[in-house]
Design a protein around this nucleic acid. Sequence first.
DNA 1: CAACAATTTGTTATGTTGTAACATTTACGC
DNA 2: GCGTAAATGTTACAACATAACAAATTGTTG
Lengths: 173, 173
Amino acid sequence: MSTVFPKPTHDHGRCVDDAMAEAERACREGGARLTPQRRQVLAIVLESHQPIGAYDVLARMNAAGGRTAPITVYRALDFLMTQGLVHRLASRIAFIACSLPDRHETGGGGGQNAQGDGAQFLICGDCGTVAEMTDRRIETAIRERARTAGFIVSAPVVEVEGTCPNCAGASDG
Amino acid sequence: MSTVFPKPTHDHGRCVDDAMAEAERACREGGARLTPQRRQVLAIVLESHQPIGAYDVLARMNAAGGRTAPITVYRALDFLMTQGLVHRLASRIAFIACSLPDRHETGGGGGQNAQGDGAQFLICGDCGTVAEMTDRRIETAIRERARTAGFIVSAPVVEVEGTCPNCAGASDG
DNA sequence: CAACAATTTGTTATGTTGTAACATTTACGC
DNA sequence: GCGTAAATGTTACAACATAACAAATTGTTG
Ligand SMILES: [Zn+2]
Ligand SMILES: [Zn+2]
Ligand SMILES: [Zn+2]
Ligand SMILES: [Zn+2]
């Protein structure tokens, strides 16, 4: 099986470091400014593979006595979404770090990828872990069905609730 | 092309009446109580083929000087969603009347269909009109891809933003 | 009908998510 | 340095949703 779900045993420290490095590179290349604050927000969102609410991000930023305002977090998240580094999960009203940043066109390019830019998400209802994927067949099925309805697709939102392999294995052996 | 989008010329009065009658029947059959208030909320949601916010429903209920509270609307909407008569569009934070009520299992049965119960939605970014459909191929593509990831699907959310045939025709002839 | 239980509705207050508007600071090109 | 654009700070508010408990309504049963 293709491995979309992060294994609980994976080296998450390295996972985060790699993602941060990739983000730095992508922003530098695209002429976007990954400021310390934006970097901090990205780091917080990267911290786990579960979606996190904007106000939870805020709480972590202010954990050490800061006085950051909500709008600051939203602005950083907007920036990160434009760069394709973070996605918003509408069904959870929360944000998740992109795990396939090189598969999205960044803000300067063609489309606005705030809603996932063609990615699909599997969201575990038990542990909250999210798997991001870009499945051609799903996308094609949606686009073709839309076409028969005379509908021109711009931003497909596919967010699938269910049970991840780790949680399924834990309950039914 | 299969006709999923409501045509601007369709007899909407009858469209609403039929849906109300079908709702009455479905509730009676399932032993659910479609009270006057719930009927009123359903009527408001049915009024157009665009998603409507809970507070907009509230405003219409209070238009004639009423003093209904938000919770009342949410309770009615919850009931209607349980009955499969209304769906919540997460990407819009709004509600839409079901246009295929007989395709969903109602509350008493197996699944909770609050998120659309396997339906997919095409949402026009121009006019807001929504088309609901239950496309087997989309569902299958999602389920099979999930399966290869070891993921057990419970509630797929598919909400596709784009341009409907009416709006597309208006701009490019 | 009377008494009771279950469902529905009312009332009040509060929690959660997201933005508007405008001032100030910081980074960048010249 | 200086002017401009981008980013951040500050305050206030809008929009979406639920908690907790009281009252009324409905259905059931003797
Ligand atoms: Zn990781
Ligand atoms: Zn899980
Ligand atoms: Zn109609
Ligand atoms: Zn349209």
